[in-house]
Simulated scan of single mutants.
Amino acid sequence: MAGQQSRTLFKPCIDLHGGHVKQIVGGTLSDAPESLKTNFVATKPTAYYAELYKEHGLEGGHVIMLGKGNNDAAKEALAAWPGGLQVGGGITDQNCQAWIGAGASKVIVTSFLFPEGKFSLERLEKISSLVGKDSLVVDVSCRRKDSRWFVAMDKWQRITEMEVCKESLDTLAKYCSEFLIHAADVEGLCQGIDEDLVKKLGEWVTIPTTYAGGARSISDLDLVDNLSGGKVDLTYGSSLDIFGGSLVNFDELVLYNTVAQKAMQQ
């Protein structure tokens, strides 16, 4: 295993919809409320989760605003742990610096890079210059077409012309410091990760990368570690007990990280 140099770690998340922490089946997210399938709606505020992650030193977690009405909830999380969380969802050249100012360690961008569904290198260059490469994450949310994957935007409903492959990721990596990869087809289903995608990411990525979608067991951390050679980290959503799930225990994930990080330091 590639654990001596790099090792897959658990990365936390806070998904926001309608101002609340929620876990949603990714493929059902759209402007039509009747199509939405929700696995969990939190009774606790966003600050609770931010403080929980801070307590356990879980850096690099992402706060994702799914649609409108989430700005206040996102700011609450950032205020609870300034510099400890990334923020994404509706990030543009107009608001990226303000979110860094609000306490985000990095901003996460997707749809802004695809006006009319077509990738704009000019927009990527602009937002990277505004916040700096080290403060920018590109969310390569994608959906599968046969044995290939294409970037999905607008709540993962609109498929762009950009294929997720080594060439496209190398282009993006010149302007950002990290990738967040949502596999929208398996997001929220708790039916397993997209193993083919994770394996490919291990071959393709050259910068820190977190995969999200389908994780349902703590053993998925070892699976992702093996498939990616330790190059890809993993986030959990609907399967996690702090989000109403019954398959994965948060404290066990924290312990896993502690053991893995000690192994990397040896």
Rank of each mutant, 00 (worst) to 15 (best):
A74G: 07
T160N: 00
G213V: 08
Q97P: 04
V107N: 01
L255R: 12
L29W: 02
E178A: 06
L66C: 13
G214E: 07
D72C: 02
E76M: 10
N257E: 04
D139E: 12
S219T: 14
N226V: 14
M1A: 15
V137D: 09
Q265R: 07
G245D: 04
A260P: 04
K199P: 05
V259F: 08
D194E: 12
K133E: 12
K200F: 11
E34G: 00
C142P: 06
L227K: 00
L255Y: 03
F179H: 10
G245L: 02
A98P: 09
L201Q: 08
A152K: 09
E163P: 03
C13N: 12
I181H: 00
L223C: 11
G84I: 07
Q4M: 15
N95A: 06
T92M: 02
K75H: 09
V205W: 00
H56G: 07
E125M: 11
Q5V: 15
A73T: 03
W156V: 08
L247S: 11
A42V: 02
A98Y: 07
K231I: 09
V198R: 06
Q261T: 14
L78R: 07
G84A: 01
E187S: 05
G213Q: 08
S35N: 14
G103I: 05
K166R: 14
L121R: 15
K106A: 03
T110G: 00
C13A: 15
K37A: 14
I159L: 15
M264N: 12
H17C: 10
E161R: 13
S6L: 13
F112I: 12
W99R: 03
V254Y: 04
A184M: 11
K126Q: 14
K44Y: 11
L16H: 09
G192C: 10
L227H: 07
N95D: 09
K231W: 10
Q266A: 12
A47G: 01
S128K: 08
V87K: 02
Y48M: 06
L36K: 00
S238I: 00
S6Q: 15
V131G: 07
F119Y: 15
N39F: 02
V87W: 01
F179M: 11
I193E: 01
N95Y: 02
V186K: 03
C165S: 15
L221P: 05
L240D: 05
T206S: 15
H182Q: 08
V198F: 00
E34H: 10
K75Y: 10
H20Y: 14
F243P: 03
T210F: 10
K75F: 12
N257T: 09
I181N: 07
F150M: 04
C176V: 10
A215P: 07
W156I: 06
S246H: 15
R123L: 10
V21C: 13
